[in-house]
Computed example of a mutant assay.
Amino acid sequence: MKTFLFNNKRAIYGGVITFFIITTGVFLLGNISGYEAKNLLEASLSGINMLCNTIVLASATILALLLTLLGISSGTESKLKDGHYLEVLNIAKIDTILFIVTLIMFQLFNIPITESSEVPTGWFSFIYWITLFISSVLSGAMVVVILMLYNTVTNIILIVGLKQDHELIYKEEDLEEQKDKANSSND
């Protein structure tokens, strides 16, 4: 876990900053009554649904593009270290979680709660704040995935496209060390 946090600290910082910017904007609205919250919820649900729809579509596209990235990675002349594949695996894990959570939230946001006469008016304030908080978290998580993907794509461009020496490429001495370990374990 520490390695993941260290390797992806810029992406995580970006997501956290996005979350705080959005939540700060939301909380600047101040305290609202249940009736105001119901009206604001009605007005914001279409935008929140669009956000969820966009995140679901982007997450699915990213998962598909990761397969292309793996094809490029395995087709390169350089032998890539496990760290590269672990980066791709981490992106896939977070992206899949984001996809599932966003899809669930999309379904929950489509419940016509503002049309129900059974929901007490006082609850709308709570529902409104929770809805905005969740959309902030989803936005921040999407930024994390995009920044992690950016880092991985940048590494591939440096390795495959520009053929630069990189920490994710096995060097001659690394390959010899691996062979020695394999031979000593076979003995």
Rank of each mutant, 00 (worst) to 15 (best):
N49V: 15
S73E: 10
N110D: 06
N186E: 15
S73Y: 08
V153L: 14
Y170S: 05
Q178K: 14
A58E: 12
F27Y: 11
A182M: 05
L29I: 12
V119C: 01
I94E: 03
I91Y: 10
L149D: 08
G83N: 08
T24N: 08
L138N: 13
E172A: 06
E42L: 02
L66C: 10
I22G: 08
N39W: 04
F19Q: 11
I62G: 06
N7Q: 03
A11Q: 05
L80A: 02
H166Y: 15
N155G: 14
K171N: 00
S73V: 04
I127N: 02
N183A: 08
E42S: 01
I12G: 06
T76S: 15
E176A: 12
G14A: 08
P112S: 01
K38G: 14
L162N: 15
V119W: 15
K38E: 15
L80R: 00
S74Q: 10
I21R: 08
I134R: 00
F124D: 11
M105S: 04
I22L: 10
M148S: 02
N31I: 02
T96A: 09
L158V: 11
L28A: 10
N183M: 10
A60W: 07
F126I: 15
L29C: 03
I111T: 09
I156P: 00
L40Y: 11
A92Y: 03
D174R: 09
D95K: 05
L65Q: 08
K2L: 15
V137K: 02
F133Y: 09
V144H: 01
N186P: 13
H84A: 07
Q178R: 15
N31T: 02
Q164E: 14
D180P: 11
K181N: 07
D174F: 01
D165W: 02
S59I: 09
E115M: 09
F20D: 01
I12N: 09
L5P: 06
L63P: 00
S139R: 01
A92F: 09
Y150V: 07
G122C: 01
M50E: 13
K93R: 04
I157L: 10
T18K: 06
T152N: 08
